[in-house]
Measured scan of single mutants.
Amino acid sequence: MSIQHFRVALIPFFAAFCLPVFAHPETLVKVKDAEDQLGARVGYIELDLNSGKILESFRPEERFPMMSTFKVLLCGAVLSRVDAGQEQLGRRIHYSQNDLVKYSPVTEKHLTDGMTVRELCSAAITMSDNTAANLLLTTIGGPKELTAFLHNMGDHVTRLDRWEPELNEAIPNDERDTTMPAAMATTLRKLLTGELLTLASRQQLIDWMEADKVAGPLLRSALPAGWFIADKSGASERGSRGIIAALGPDGKPSRIVVIYTTGSQATMDERNRQIAEIGASLIKHW
């Protein structure tokens, strides 16, 4: 058993032996400061991975655009179909130039040979490839079927209504393609630790998130040596930015963190910096 498999397999085991986890309101002070700095709403939640207890939250039940963070949920739905014998990670999917949409750094290189379902999930999560996400959405029946999958998990909040890139429109008060921090954190925890997916599929999902290559300026920039993080970021119109993550010290995840912001006029660099500073406060007061 690899170190990674050891880590995921023991998450339920550690729940019975973990020390009490204490919240630190200092992080919420930073979240509120980020709102002031960005001139935008910020949603935040910090969840204990083992118990599911909410440690801190700010606007946990307000809607925010999901942006590309939905791609983790999408690959969770794909893995659920794999577990049920309805899909194979090794199945190759062929597509054409007409299928390519904006920001497809991986799929645009494989027009001649296509990509496997496994490769598409990797591209969608680690590189946020939009065509990969659309191709995967097609395999499960489209955005409405992803919403149905989430409903069956008990998440009646999170919804996907459109495809890439239209889902990134982020119109104020538009509930399409949105979630709430509390709903996203709970759903992510179920995917990573619950019985919905097999152990192998849970491991695969967290491996893809751990290999994320496009979230460096966010929480990863504040991470001390030896800490673990598996994450997925997102960005969209109207100053929207977000990240969902499982992270913790000693090389294993122990908390879920979800951060969303929307409605800012700030630059992408400034949005990144504010999220990184929230992460730094979280780690300092861990």
Rank of each mutant, 00 (worst) to 15 (best):
S2A: 11
S2D: 10
Q4K: 15
H5P: 09
P12N: 13
C18G: 11
C18S: 13
L19K: 11
P20A: 07
V21R: 15
P25T: 09
V29W: 12
A40W: 06
G43P: 00
Y44E: 00
G52T: 04
L55S: 04
L55H: 06
E56G: 09
E61T: 14
R63T: 05
R63S: 05
C75V: 13
V78C: 05
A84H: 12
Q86I: 13
E87Y: 04
E87G: 03
Q88R: 14
H94R: 13
S96T: 15
S96M: 11
S96C: 11
S96D: 13
Q97R: 14
D99A: 12
V101I: 14
Y103L: 04
P105S: 06
K109E: 12
L111F: 11
L111W: 11
T112P: 14
T112E: 14
D113R: 11
V117D: 07
L120V: 03
L120S: 02
T131A: 09
T131N: 02
L137M: 09
L137A: 01
I140S: 01
E145H: 12
L146V: 08
T147S: 07
N152H: 12
G154A: 15
T158A: 02
R159Q: 07
L160G: 03
W163C: 08
E164I: 03
E166K: 07
E166Q: 10
E166Y: 12
A170L: 09
P172L: 10
P172S: 10
E175L: 11
D177H: 01
T178C: 05
T178S: 10
T179A: 01
P181V: 05
P181Q: 00
R189A: 09
L197S: 02
T198L: 08
R202K: 14
Q203R: 13
I206N: 07
W208V: 00
M209S: 00
D212H: 05
D212I: 06
A215T: 08
L218V: 03
A222Q: 13
L223E: 01
A225F: 10
A225L: 12
A230C: 09
D231Y: 02
K232T: 02
K232L: 03
G234E: 02
A235T: 09
S236T: 09
E237M: 08
R238C: 13
G239S: 08
R241C: 02
A245E: 03
A245G: 06
A246N: 04
P249H: 05
G251V: 06
P253H: 07
S254Q: 12
I259G: 00
Q265V: 15
A266I: 07
A266Y: 07
T267K: 09
T267G: 11
I275L: 08
E277V: 09
E277I: 11
I278L: 06
G279A: 10
S281R: 09
H285S: 07
H285D: 05
